[in-house]
């Protein structure tokens, strides 16, 4: 994984500290061209990986990336699934069977055998696989070396102690997509325990890691110890803790922690993107030379 990964919250009105800012972002990124423009700004700053939810608008972004293979040579996307609202809305509107019908890839009747049988026999892992396939449809032809399970689902399964399902996701991504599975979580140490217990070695885990301990369940100290003493590939997100920590301080903190492979951040403006990237390089260099 690259050291810096670009996130997508700003494109879809996800703002953890202000509803007003969320609305402003939703206005700003109404057109796909605005998203592409920001992604290109990030690419110009050297960020060649985009981690994105399987929001339907990402489908349009994938189209644009596919249409310009020369421009986007080497560009990687890390899908995060599912975009939960999509399913929640569909279940309310169409029911569970209707939802499966809508999201099972290709012609429902064509894949009726797997879909229909899985549904009737309540073979939940097969249903999970079908849903993964449907989420992955939009990324066809795009380089997706890591595929993530989104945090609400990861943490829900974790709380319900459904470790087997987490492991099954890991295995399926490996087998079907020749990619690595990643997990986004707000409960990193607990998730690592569960994955290791299920036999998953050196998993990719993306979690909040910041100086003020925001959304670091179990506390900052436990996270720091886990990073120091355990074997996994950590991605730090929410490093600014929603704006609670000034950029320089925030980046210094994550860059000096051991065991963090990548840093995920999202921003809208060129200035913020460039500043964050240069801070990361600056502190990485400092650690390297000291």
């Amino acid at each position: 994984m690259e050291r810096i990964i670009f996130g997508d919250n700003q494109f879809f009105a996800v703002n953890h500290i202000s509803d007003e800012k969320a609305m402003a972002q939703s206005i700003r990124f109404k057109e796909d061209a605005a998203i592409i423009h920001t992604l290109d700004t990030a690419r110009n700053a050297g960020i060649e990986t985009f981690m994105c939810t399987t929001h339907e608008r990402i489908g349009n972004i994938c189209d644009i990336v596919r249409e310009q293979p020369d421009k986007y040579r080497g560009y990687k996307m890390y899908p995060c699934m599912p975009y939960a609202h999509k399913y929640a809305n569909a279940v309310t509107e169409l029911g569970v069977t209707g939802t499966l019908k809508k999201f099972v890839p290709g012609n429902f009747f064509g894949s009726m055998f797997k879909g229909g049988v899985a549904f009737l026999s309540k073979d939940y892992l097969s249903i999970m696989e079908l849903l993964v396939d449907s989420e992955m449809k939009m990324f066809k032809g795009i380089d997706t070396p890591v595929i993530f399970l989104q945090n609400v689902i990861t943490d829900l399964l974790l709380g319900m102690q459904m470790n087997e399902v987490l492991v099954a996701f890991h295995e399926y991504i490996n087998k079907k997509y020749n990619a690595e599975a990643g997990f986004i979580t707000m409960n990193m140490p607990r998730l690592l325990d569960a994955l290791e217990a299920g036999g998953v070695k050196n998993p990719i885990i993306c979690s909040s890691i910041n100086k003020v301990g925001f959304r670091m369940s179990g506390g900052r100290e436990l996270y720091e110890n886990t990073l120091k003493t355990r074997q996994f590939r950590a991605i730090a997100m929410q490093v600014l803790a929603g704006g609670a920590v000034p950029a320089r301080e925030a980046i210094e903190y994550v860059c000096t922690l051991p065991g963090i492979e990548s840093i995920l951040f999202g921003a809208s403006s060129k200035v913020n993107i460039q500043e964050t990237v240069s801070l990361i390089h600056q502190y990485d260099k400092k650690i390297f030379t000291s």
């Binding site: 829900l156 929603g242 704006g243």
Partner: peptide, 15 residues
């Protein structure tokens, strides 16, 4: 002030 300044951390987080 933001929720980040005003919220007590929890042992397990969901939503």
């Amino acid at each position: 002030k933001y929720v980040t300044d005003l919220t007590e951390p929890v042992d397990y987080y969901l939503r």
